[in-house]
Design a binder for these strands. Sequence first.
DNA 1: ATGTCC
Length: 377
Amino acid sequence: MSQQHSSPPATVTVFASPASWIESDAVAQCHQVAALDGMTHVAAMPDLHPGKGAPIGAAMASTVLYPFLVGSDIGCGIAVFPVKLKRAVPEKLAARFPDLDRALDPERDADDPAWAVLKGDVPAGHVEGLGTVGRGNHFVELARIGTILDAGHASRLGLDAGDLVLVVHSGSRGLGERILRAHTEVHGAGPAPDPAAYLAAHDDAVRWGSLNRRLLAARVAHALGFEPAEPIVDQCHNLVELRDGSYLHRKGAAPGDGRDVLIAGTRGTPSYLVAAHAGPDAGHSVAHGAGRKMSRSDALRRGRAKHTVEELRRTPVGSLVVCGDRQLLFEEAPTAYKRIEQVIADLVDHALATPIATTIPLVTYKTPENRGKRGRR
DNA sequence: ATGTCC
């Protein structure tokens, strides 16, 4: 690929210890991005892994806006909601999760109580797929607060050890995909010629993603019998923001400037709620999760030899995984991801974040049971 | 990641 450079290559900083496994392909992708016209800095998080064209787990600053650096799931993020339930028996609750592959239809489902979280209009008027979780690494998880690591901060968030929370990881479904495709069809991996126009569509997708997480939480709340509530945290890890006169693209990197972030572990290990305090070298960002250690195809191949479906559905922490798609179950096996403890340790060592508490999965919902990967409806 | 390529 030939490229005219009007600026020197950007700096690349990887925020990971030598003990952390970072795929060389992913670092190479960071340097490819750094060589793009206008790039000023690339900050790679400890959960860095190769993506399609651009690395996942990075904050990338540039004088020009590159839509492909955000990717198709614009607005994807993780929200945490408080849950008040008297008893939480995983087997019973797993059976009560609603079908989150089935979209909420404004007309057919007009009287669904989940709509109460909708204030105003649906962003971009995009009602397709509303209230659905999606696939890949997305999930809705009922979890218990495990270890409190910062008592003062946890208390300010209203959290005690043993409390229940709902963790929702989902994005903008077809809307973000449509926005990137509209750009790519004309400009490929080139910059947005009209950044304001892209940003207007992008901002709709970010709002849509956040609304979707609230709708998902409300659907689950009504099905499981607890009161829907405002999220304790809700951070989007695929977005671009105008900051200090340049475009800060985040792809699998959460805003880390004075905000609380849930950094997802895996479907079978704890996650970490952290107070993020990342500076400009880190692209004002922190990691968004454990990060893949294996490609999906490797995870499927190696997982089939290593795991039974039963041990992936009942995890080492005693949680249940609701996932009628066996292939997805293997692709998302905890062993396909890096150790979340190492990711968190790297953030702490680089003074990017301070852990507040862990969340321990009870029930992780991926996709309905008793349905093939090509489920109908 | 995705109403994606059957």
